[in-house]
Write a protein that binds this DNA or RNA. Structure first.
Lengths: 294, 294
DNA sequence: CCCCTTATGTTCAATTTTGCACATGATCGA
DNA sequence: TCGATCATGTGCAAAATTGAACATAAGGGG
């Protein structure tokens, strides 16, 4: 039968697009990938890639083969999950993926508790906007703001948080409502509810800063650049920010705890899930409610 | 990620049961399999097999892993089919599986035509009772006597043939009906319709020979051992055999041409399928009907 | 326009993997 | 009980795979 490692390398090449990227993903030298692809072509007697100047491009046959081989990769990931799930006890590494703001504000500060409770546990925390693929095991457990649709995933709603507008106290004192400026996400987040909510409130008033990073928005708001839509857990504890209540119904988002079914029973993963649920649950809604009427 | 070749070796070990058998199936030395399994255990940090005296026996974790890895093997076979299907033109090898009697009587004698028509085509003909697995690519195309139920397989009825009782002319002349002896399959074929049919006819009369090979039955019948249930295509052309019509409705069996969907469009395979349909179609039902009433 | 980064190809030495020969232990049948 | 067969374990040498260093080429940005 065809060499499975050759197939693995080919699948990676098909996904990554270049020899070098595939090599990085596989943890080998790019030459090795090139040789494996060549070996696969020889074994199948098919021309799978066009060797062009700066990149390998799959041929028709190559694309077909990549399509056929994709389920094999899925199966390989399932095997990895099975391995992780089979490992007994509470010794090992668990990767958590979460939106950066949640990761920083809710999880990171409490990680020390988890370490105390399970000394054998190593945590890898990925704070990324992009939702890590649990199927590809980029993460073992994830916090998401929407319920994921992928098959094989188990999702549980473990909490929610609200957004309000925040600004520097001095800025709010000195600026008439009609002259307020706003701070928003860039266009990549246009579909996010909080972004649409902010834009609706802003109306014709100026949006003076676009940034994809929530911490940047908070920092700008602190220095009086304008008003930013921030989660309560981020804005309320901040002494340099006060809420500005626009009088419209606030927006809230749900927090979903997501895990692959294959891993949902592994002791290691269960421990982390319990921890994450604890991180989120205790009413972080209105901890330090400094309200500024209109 | 886990080494895919290690997984391949492990899957084989799980299926075959022993290092040596797995090694044979993989075409490598048994030592290599042992080393790969050890490597997999080290990588997963799981104990996958109990090394016992004469055989490796999977642990609980090993069985779980084997179950998880099985889909990977299925996917690998799908890749192989894709490769075969992608190969252009009419150059290559096609494996045909068929019941031994059909293979000998209908296919083998006509193979020369196929070779003349497609000189680039190499045929591997497997005449085996056991139905070769098209999913595992033990064969590319198969003739079966029943419609297979496996998913992914495409089956087409391309003909049928009847059974009658046959015996040596002298034997039939000299033996009164109540003293007739019978030749049957051994117990492994007890569920086959022709076997049940024969037993019903034999009734209380003696079954004097049990053999799993149809050619053996024919040879024994020729020398006057008794009556055998033979397909018409085998008994009718034989000058040393005549039909003995028991007056009961004859039994017929269907011939199904089976191929995996992934391969059903490959030119190479299509050519072979057309050939097989031609082999079977032309009314081989009653070519040399020598009838002996009762 | 040039430099910097990134990607692929080539060569060679080091490492890893593999198979072979042989040994041991177990089972089966005569 | 003995011998034959089959399965696994060990040591070693051959073969294959791999990575590092270097070379070439193509964008991209200042």
């Amino acid at each position: 039968m065809i060499d499975w490692t050759d197939l693995h390398h080919f699948v990676m090449l098909a996904r990554e697009g270049t020899l070098s990227a595939a090599a990085r993903a596989l943890g080998v030298d790019h030459v090795t990938v090139a040789r494996r692809i060549a070996a696969l072509e020889q074994a199948t007697r098919l021309k799978l890639v066009d060797r062009r100047a700066r990149l390998y491009v799959l041929t028709e046959d190559g694309r077909r083969l990549a399509t056929a081989a994709a389920p094999m990769e899925d199966a390989a990931y399932a095997v990895e999950r099975a391995i992780k799930a089979a490992r007994p006890g509470l010794l090992g590494e668990v990767t958590i993926s979460a939106p950066p703001s949640l990761a920083n504000a809710m999880i990171a500060p409490k990680l020390i508790e988890l370490r105390r409770q399970h000394p054998g546990l190593t945590i890898k925390l990925i704070g990324e906007k992009r939702a890590a693929s649990l199927n590809r095991r980029e993460a073992d457990v994830a916090l998401r703001l929407t319920r994921p649709a992928e098959a094989g995933l188990v999702a549980r709603r473990i909490g929610s948080f609200g957004f309000s507008l925040y600004g520097a106290p001095a800025y709010l004192r000195e600026t008439p409502p009609s002259a307020l400026s706003f701070i928003a996400y860039d266009a990549s987040m246009d579909e996010a509810p909080q972004q649409q909510w902010l834009k609706a409130i802003a109306g014709r008033r100026a949006i003076v800063l676009l940034t994809s990073d929530l911490e940047n928005q908070a920092a700008a708001a602190r220095t009086g650049v304008g008003l930013a839509a921030l989660p309560h857990f981020l804005g309320d504890p901040d002494p340099h920010l006060v809420r500005f209540d626009p009088g419209r119904s606030e927006i809230t988002r749900e927090i979903w705890l997501v895990v692959h079914r294959d891993l949902s029973r592994a002791p290691l993963v269960r421990a982390v899930m319990q921890f994450l649920a604890r991180c989120v649950k205790p009413g972080r809604q209105a901890k330090n409610p400094v309200r500024t009427p209109l």
